[in-house]
Design a protein around this nucleic acid. Structure first.
Length: 785
DNA sequence: CAGTCTACTATTTTT
DNA sequence: TAGTAGACTG
């Protein structure tokens, strides 16, 4: 066993304290670059080696698979890998899936339930809204879907929401939520938010299950705690047995350790609440808080800039990062005339850094606020031949052809999965059109049977065309054929069978659309992904390796299954995950991997010779670090984003995003903006980002501080040369309370003005009949009265 | 039923 | 500008 005593010396005092603290809940506030992952992994090693904790008693939760993998790998570097295998180091979602696969039966779900991603759940909501005959203009399915997601994040079920529904909108939403949830249940499916919510429900409703996990996991560690939403917060509370429904007196609660940094919370728009970290000491009165402020990543100049920016946010716990890495060079600033010019500057600098032998391209990252901004960089990078890699954007598993085949696989794994079934019904084209689909749906509703069952009884469906019926027969026969071979085939074999027997591949092969060529390639890659999965498979994500030495458990493990557990939980079937029996990967395992584990092609390896420049959004950059960072598009309206300018909280989140961006840089930081930027075809003139003003002047050396085309802060567009659709017209300067007339809505009152320059928006109230509407002032046919 | 056309909309997104 | 979703027509 490696001596941990020695390695504790690599830690600073607060880090060491965080590693060794015991006996009460622990909050570690870890500033950017303060060695958070190191502390977490050392803490785990310390638990195992010094405190006699068994690996099976540790549950470490992260948000991303990448973080989980990294933590696991780094723990393995400290202790034996066999021990590391018995720990649960998982994302919130995969941990919940493990629990739900075992216990979901109590909630009426099959253990092979399907996981719907955001696209699937939107599709289902669309079907639900159509079924309810809702006007998509007044009740947009997309918005309903988002709202249901928010409700689930708040653990508000449809009944509770329905009771308090007042307006028509809310009532319809409650109805849609109810129906949506019923459809999910019928399809044996859960959406992402269900994974968390239903696990909380399960633990709250079945105290024996909750107790089982509390007895089992004596240590619960949570990473990125500032990103937890309410449901995840409640889940953690359930796991440690505080605030739960069961009697906590029976045995001591598990020890909780959370790590986070409120200043790096950038996912509030997804329901994350900063509250969870700010109020940790109130939630857990015994808690100890440790602050990590020494940064091991960046130069002091970079940290000073970051500190200055984040300080503008009110109501935060004061925290000042410092570094002993030296002052470092100043930040380089650049004002470009347009976005191409900006990209050219970035490329030029990267070339220069490379030529001077200071940095290789792989040490450089370019950040931007929105994915759309990547295009220009891509253009310029290609033109100059500088190798690059864009992280994010259209993801592999979101491509149409992959989703089509996935839908087949899901139907094979779970025939009741209606969303997937309806997706492939007429893919490839086989003559089952909207008409036929509708009559099957109607028939299913009337007979109170599932869509899948209705399909198999299609001959009884009223008003179905003979031609359609024949096509449906062929389709169900095809499915049966595939279902037959599925149980004895590996995932990759199943995929190949689907590709060939459905005619999907030949349809693409016969197409003359060039896009379809790359589709075929993607599908080939998909088969490879499946093969790779089979080769590296080490046991299912769920179930699998439980206790490694069941007998040694402190106190008898009372399994949640009552009688079954009495025969010795852990010693039985569950234990075979490791060792002797190499488990065969099932289709369900494969599908789960795909839904829960995002992209294979992510951040390029830094140490590859020369390597490539990494381009990504600021959000994707969280958790990463690069020797050289370019923060681009520093313009009000771009970053901070136009849509955040009105809301105080959202602007604060943008500022945190800026903080995250700045603190990614280790040695060199560049900040740039462009005077003109084309958005959706039309150029717009943006003023400098307010975040630029928040960086102390003496930290920045401006390579170019003014644009040639817009010497001072331009007010409005010098309307482009070519006549736009709208004849040139006075753009009114509006203020709240102004009366205006609109060409089609008539007279109204300005309620809200928001945004900058060309992108100024106004909310105008046209009275009871029409209500409030938002306009882009530049384009709206409004006149000030 | 299937291909084509038009109208619409447009952050960030760990799972 | 560009991608998509629904309507329209052959």
């Amino acid at each position: 066993m490696p001596s941990l005593e020695l390695s504790l010396n690599d830690l600073n005092a607060p880090q060491r304290e965080a590693v060794t603290h015991s006996g009460s809940p622990l909050l570690i506030i870890a500033g950017a670059g303060s060695g958070k992952t190191r502390v977490l992994t050392y803490r785990i090693a310390h638990l195992l080696e010094q405190r006699g904790v068994r690996p099976g008693e540790i549950l470490a939760i992260t948000f991303t698979n990448k973080a989980a993998a990294e933590m696991k790998q780094r723990v393995e570097g400290l202790i034996s890998s066999r021990a590391a295998n018995a720990m649960w180091v998982l994302t919130f979602h995969s941990a919940c899936v493990r629990i739900l696969r075992r216990e979901g039966g109590r909630l009426g779900y099959p253990s092979s339930f399907t996981i719907y991603d955001a696209a699937d759940s939107k599709r289902l909501m669309q079907l639900v809204c159509k079924e309810m005959d809702l006007d998509p203009k007044r009740f947009p399915p997309k918005s309903f879907s988002a709202q249901v997601s928010n409700l689930k994040n708040e653990l508000i079920d449809y009944d509770t929401f329905g009771e308090s529904a007042q307006t028509e909108q809310e009532k319809k939403l409650a109805e849609a939520y109810t129906l949506y949830q019923r459809r999910l249940h019928e399809a044996g499916a859960m959406d992402f938010d269900d994974l968390i919510m239903l696990t909380v429900n399960l633990l709250e409703m079945f105290p024996d299950v909750a107790e089982y996990y509390r007895r089992r996991f004596r240590h619960v560690l949570v990473d990125e705690y500032q990103d937890t939403n309410h449901a995840q917060y409640r889940l953690v509370r359930q796991l440690v047995g505080i605030g739960g429904d069961t009697d906590p007196a029976a045995f001591p609660p598990p020890e909780l350790c959370v790590v986070g940094d409120a200043d790096q919370s950038i996912y509030a728009f997804r329901g994350a609440t900063i509250r969870n970290i700010l109020e940790f000491e109130r939630d857990y009165p015994e808690a100890r808080t440790i602050l990590l402020e020494q940064n091991y990543r960046s130069t002091q100049n970079i940290l000073n800039a970051a500190n200055a920016v984040i300080q503008r946010n009110p109501d935060r716990r004061e925290k000042k990062l410092w570094s002993d890495q030296g002052i470092g060079p100043k930040i380089t600033g650049y004002v470009a005339d347009n976005e191409h010019d900006e990209a050219a500057f970035v490329v030029g600098e990267i070339d220069k850094l490379h030529d001077e032998g200071e940095f290789t391209p792989s040490q450089v990252a370019v950040f931007y606020r929105t994915n759309a901004q990547s295009r220009v960089f891509e253009d310029v990078f290609i033109r100059t031949g500088l190798p690059y890699k864009i992280v994010g954007g259209v993801r592999f598993y979101e491509r149409k052809e992959i989703r089509d085949i996935l839908a087949y696989l899901r139907v094979l794994a779970n025939p009741e999965d209606t969303v997937s079934l309806r997706r492939i019904l007429n893919v490839p084209k086989r003559g089952i059109g909207d008409r036929a689909e509708e009559s099957i749906e109607l028939f299913a509703a009337r007979e109170r049977i599932s869509f899948a069952q209705a399909l198999r009884r299609a001959q009884d469906a009223p008003g179905i065309a003979t031609r359609s019926l024949k096509a449906i027969r062929e389709f169900t026969a095809l499915l049966e054929e595939l279902e037959e071979l599925a149980p004895s085939s590996s995932p990759s074999e199943i995929i190949e069978a689907v590709l060939h027997r459905t005619g999907y591949l030949s349809e693409l092969a016969n197409s003359k659309d060039i896009q379809d060529e790359s589709r075929v390639e993607n599908l080939e890659e998909f088969v490879d992904v499946a093969r790779e999965f089979e080769n590296t498979f080490s046991g299912p994500l769920y179930g699998g390796e439980e206790e490694e030495e069941p007998g040694a458990a402190a106190g008898e493990e009372t399994g949640p299954e009552g009688a079954a557990a009495a025969t010795g939980e852990g010693a039985g079937e569950e234990a075979e995950g490791e060792g002797e029996t190499t488990p065969e990967p099932t289709l369900v395992d494969f599908l789960e991997q795909i839904s829960l584990v995002a992209d294979t092609d992510q951040i390029p390896d830094a140490d590859e010779s020369g390597g490539v420049v990494t381009l990504m959004t600021l959000h994707s950059a969280k958790g990463l670090e690069f020797p050289v960072v370019f923060l681009t598009g520093m313009e009000d309206g771009v970053f901070p984003h136009m849509r955040t300018l009105g809301e105080k909280e959202e602007l604060e989140e943008e500022r945190r995003l800026a903080y995250v961006g700045i603190t990614r840089a280790q040695q060199r930081l560049y900040i740039s903006r462009s005077a003109v930027r084309s958005a959706w075809g039309t150029p717009s003139y943006n003023p400098a980002s307010r975040f630029l003003d928040e960086v102390p002047k003496d930290l920045v050396e401006w390579r170019r501080s003014e644009s040639a085309i817009a010497p001072s802060r331009p007010k409005f567009a010098t309307q482009s040369r070519k006549p736009s659709a709208r004849p040139s017209r006075e753009v009114p300067t509006l203020e709240v309370g102004d009366k205006v007339t609109h060409d089609s809505f008539g007279m109204g009152t300005v309620q809200l003005v928001d945004g900058v320059g060309d992108r100024t928006k106004a909310r105008i109230d046209f009275g009871a009949d029409i209500g409030e509407k938002d306009f882009l002032v530049k384009f709206a046919p409004i006149e000030k009265l």
